[in-house]
Simulated assay, not measured.
Amino acid sequence: MRLTDAQWTVLAPLFPQPFKRTNRGRPRRPDREVLDGILWILRTGAQWYALPKDEYPSKTTCHDRFQEWNEQNVFPKILAALYELGEEDQVLDLREAFIDGTFSPAKKGARVSAQPKKGKGTKIMVIVDASGVPLAIHTTSASPAEVRLVHDTLDASFGLDFPKRLIGDKAYDSDGLDAELAAVGVEMIAPNRRNRRKTQDGRPLRRYKRRWKVERTIAWLQSFRRIRTRDEVKAQNFLGFVQLGCIVILLRMVRCLPVQ
């Protein structure tokens, strides 16, 4: 996986300028080369030491730059900028959005994690627009129910606009959640659980049939092996890889810039 010239033209202005070095040493490797190496790790799920030495910068360079960008919150800023580009290109459709969660098992001792029935791992919450463009991403312990994570996921949005309707499965069937979202102008649409009284009529629920769009986006994220299984001990590092996966998806969908 390598960035195309068109993609780098979009991304280059969004990376921070490096601090001027006062001491002598090796010149700093270009951000594009390093990012290509990090994307190779994202796609393959390999360990840093497995980076092909003849194709990418050293594992130390790529890992340190990844840590540096994570600490500077570079990836969320890029996502926000790509979100704005999507609005300019009029490819975002906020008339409705879809929410769902997925689970990434953890191989190592993840600090923000839990041991639910599926085993130790991390939950990834995703919101996409009517076209499947990712709007928000949130990672947390796998223990809390998804209905309790809706607000945190909305707060993690790449932009400031809330969708008019938020559509989920039966896990989001809650009178309390319906009322809370209605207060901020969002209609929650979810089929009722068996033990619940009927609160949704047939007309809004027709939108539920399009929930496959969020499932498709989750499948795209899970195609990156570094996201499918969590190898990072630090929660921030794992979130950084998930955000990077969203950046790749947004580049494909917003500016129609496929990755080589």
Rank of each mutant, 00 (worst) to 15 (best):
T60P: 00
K170L: 05
K117V: 12
P76R: 05
S174R: 14
C256Y: 00
D31L: 11
V126Q: 12
M188A: 01
E146Y: 07
W40R: 03
Y49K: 06
I218H: 02
T139G: 04
D129R: 06
D231W: 15
G202N: 10
V248Q: 08
L166I: 13
P116W: 03
Q236W: 07
M125H: 13
Q236N: 12
Y208L: 06
F19H: 14
D173K: 06
Q115K: 09
M1I: 02
P134C: 00
L154S: 09
K20W: 15
F103M: 11
A156Y: 12
W48E: 06
F15S: 04
L39A: 07
I127S: 04
T199L: 14
Q115P: 03
H63D: 13
R29F: 06
T61C: 10
D36P: 02
R194C: 02
D100I: 10
D64C: 02
A179C: 00
A97E: 12
K118M: 09
R95E: 15
R111H: 13
V91E: 09
F158A: 07
E215P: 00
Q17C: 07
I41K: 05
V242K: 14
R111A: 10
D31C: 07
D173M: 05
L251Y: 02
L39N: 09
D178L: 04
E88P: 00
A46T: 02
A182V: 02
S141D: 10
V150M: 06
P52Y: 00
V242M: 03
